[in-house]
Write a protein that binds this DNA or RNA. Sequence first.
DNA 1: CACCTTCCTATCATATATGATTGCATGAAA
DNA 2: TTTCATGCAATCATATATGATAGGAAGGTG
Lengths: 72, 72
Amino acid sequence: MNKEVILVKIGLKIREFRKEKNLSIMEFSDKLEIEYNNLIRIEKGRTNFTIGTLLKICKALDVKLVDIVNVE
Amino acid sequence: MNKEVILVKIGLKIREFRKEKNLSIMEFSDKLEIEYNNLIRIEKGRTNFTIGTLLKICKALDVKLVDIVNVE
DNA sequence: CACCTTCCTATCATATATGATTGCATGAAA
DNA sequence: TTTCATGCAATCATATATGATAGGAAGGTG
């Protein structure tokens, strides 16, 4: 599984967790220190984001790192 | 646990896996498409590297994403 | 119809990760 | 001693992630 596919899958998983919390992207990006459009890029798998950004997302979703990257 | 601490811990874990394979940083960066000095930055936790870079490392070490980010 | 929310894209500027190179310190071995 | 491998840091240029903003499409509600 190549990078592009994994980034898409991780994005989908983030979106799943966000919807579980009944958060819109805007509400979610407010909780984060991440820009609204950047969050969309991440959820759509269109950007190769950093570990630090992933950690922010995990914190805002109250999930562990392993819960999100478990896509293989 | 903040970002800096987690990046250091992830770096240490990468180093552990590398030593288990008896690879020097130079040998390891040859297997990767990652520069030698960048690998040092990552292992020392001095850079907020990307998911794509993490995936390259996982592939070269033949481990799963979750094995490396399981530091919390 | 207008109005609002949500999701999404595009664009540009800026910050930062990465590539590439150089140099230094240490230790092992000849 | 010299020589070599290894780990590490510093520097600069370049590629790219991110911040910031604007606008469009679809759906719901008045």
